Amino acid sequence: MLKQRLQDDMKAAMKSGDKPRLGVIRLINAAIKQREVDERIELDDTQVLVVLDKMLKQRRDSIAQYEAAGRQDLAEQERFEVEICQGYLPAALSDAEIAGMIDDAVTATGAAAMQDMGKVMAILKPQMQGRADMAAVSKQVKARLTG
């Protein structure tokens, strides 16, 4: 379980005195706990991946903003957080795997035009969560359905 791994890594970071890593793991745990409290549920691994994905998207947006503002120090901190968060995600899908999954989803839904994009994405999102940049996948689906 991903939550247990996070707890174990937090304890290890405490024991080794790795404060930067400990801080990031605590941020992840806080985000998970917040969602559990808000929705009154216990998150499973798939839902934890959704939380991690959201955190990564926020960090990437922050990096772009910090770099545009010339704040390399803050951008580096965000990059460090991205690196730690990515360590808890499953292996990323290759471009060929993504293309194959898109083809399968288009075939399964019988999608032929842009109005079918929601059906295709509904199939792809659970399969790719935490393993691919969904914004990039969305662009590929759009290109496939319009071209």
Score class of each variant (00 low, 15 high):
Lys139Ser: 10
Ala30Ile: 02
Ala91Val: 14
Asp53His: 08
Ala91Phe: 01
Ala64Ser: 13
Asp95Gly: 07
Leu43Lys: 04
Lys57Met: 08
Arg131Val: 02
Phe80Lys: 08
Gln140Trp: 00
Lys139Met: 09
Ile84Phe: 10
Met134Ser: 05
Val37Gln: 08
Val48Gly: 03
Ala105His: 04
Ser138Gly: 14
Met14Thr: 11
Lys11Asn: 11
Ala91Glu: 14
Ala68Asp: 15
Arg59Val: 04
Met121Ser: 06
Leu43Phe: 06
Met14Cys: 06
Leu43Arg: 11
Arg60Glu: 13
Glu83Val: 05
Ile98Phe: 06
Asp44Met: 01
Val137Pro: 00
Glu97Asn: 07
Val24His: 05
Ile63Pro: 07
Ile84Pro: 05
Ala12Cys: 01
Leu124Tyr: 00
Ala96Phe: 05
Ala12Ser: 11
Gly70Ala: 11
Arg71Lys: 15
Phe80Gly: 14
Val106Asn: 06
Pro126Asn: 10
Gly118Ala: 13
Met117Asp: 01
Gln77Leu: 15
Gln140Met: 14
Val48Arg: 00
Glu97Cys: 11
Gly17Thr: 03
Gly70Asn: 10
Ala91Cys: 04
Gln127Cys: 04
Ala132Gln: 07
Lys15Met: 12
Ile28Val: 15
Val37Pro: 00
Leu52Arg: 01
Ala113Met: 07
Val37Cys: 00
Asp95Ile: 07
Leu52Glu: 04
Pro90Ile: 05
Arg59Ser: 13
Lys15Asn: 12
Ala13Asn: 08
Ala91His: 08
Ala31Glu: 12
Gly70Gln: 09
Arg79Ile: 03
Gly110Tyr: 01
Gly110Phe: 04
Asp133Asn: 15
Leu49Trp: 00
Asp73Met: 09
Pro126Thr: 11
Arg131Phe: 03
Asp45Glu: 07
Ile63Ala: 09
Asp73Cys: 10
Met14Lys: 13
Lys33Trp: 02
Asp103Ser: 13
Gly23Ala: 11
Ser94Pro: 08
Lys54Leu: 04
Phe80Ile: 09
Tyr66His: 15
Asp61Ser: 13
Met117Thr: 09
Gln86Gly: 12
Asp45His: 05
Gln77Met: 13
Asp45Gln: 05
Lys139Gln: 13
Ala136Asn: 08
Arg79Leu: 05
Ala136Gln: 12
Ala30Pro: 00
Ala69Phe: 06
Arg144Ile: 02
Gln58Ala: 14
Gln86Asn: 13
Val37His: 01
Leu49Ser: 07
Ile98Trp: 05
Ala91Asn: 08
Ile84Cys: 06
Glu76Met: 13
Gly17Met: 02
